[in-house]
Amino acid sequence: MSQENGDLLRVVYLSTSLISRSPGAFRAEMASILEACARRNPRLGVTGVLIYERGRFVQLLEGPAEAVDALLDDIETDVRHGLFKILWRTRASRRLFENWSMAFMDAADAPALPDAATPWERASPVQLAARLAFAGKHLSVLSVPVSPASPAVNTADRPGSAYA
């Protein structure tokens, strides 16, 4: 995996959803996750995209290292996440995502993803970034701009522009 020098930390993780399958649980937990992420991440200067795909979460987080690491600690111990695995961790000088967004990839009407046959675990960083950027751009159901007052925001790049 390539390493960049920069002030930002970029991490992609994969986890299994442990949300109960009882009726209503998915909606309630997703509401909780979305509300918390939408409220918290932009304030911390953390951008990226959260994807839910057939029982799994994939999220790219990028922002100040301290904030990203704190979020990862929370997520790893969150009872809704299991089999937590970091797929990509790198320093970056520029953001791939200007917003934080959320996308579903198993919705029936979702367009086919580029390189969909490659499992997340075996995707290269470039494939990961491309796939996540595509989802953030085309499948997003929620997009939250990062706060202008948040730390270490570099909005020189447009969201997903490097790979979309």
């Binding site: 399958r21 939408a38 304030r43 579903f104 997009s143 939250v144």
Partner: peptide, 26 residues
């Protein structure tokens, strides 16, 4: 200082993608 997307949350939770994911999950 954050423009919270309060309205967008309802849209996301009421989206067809959420509906399909919830049904598939259950």
């Amino acid at each position: 200082h954050t423009p919270l997307p309060a309205a967008c949350l309802l849209d996301a939770l009421g989206s067809s993608a959420m509906e399909e994911a919830a049904q598939a999950h259950e």
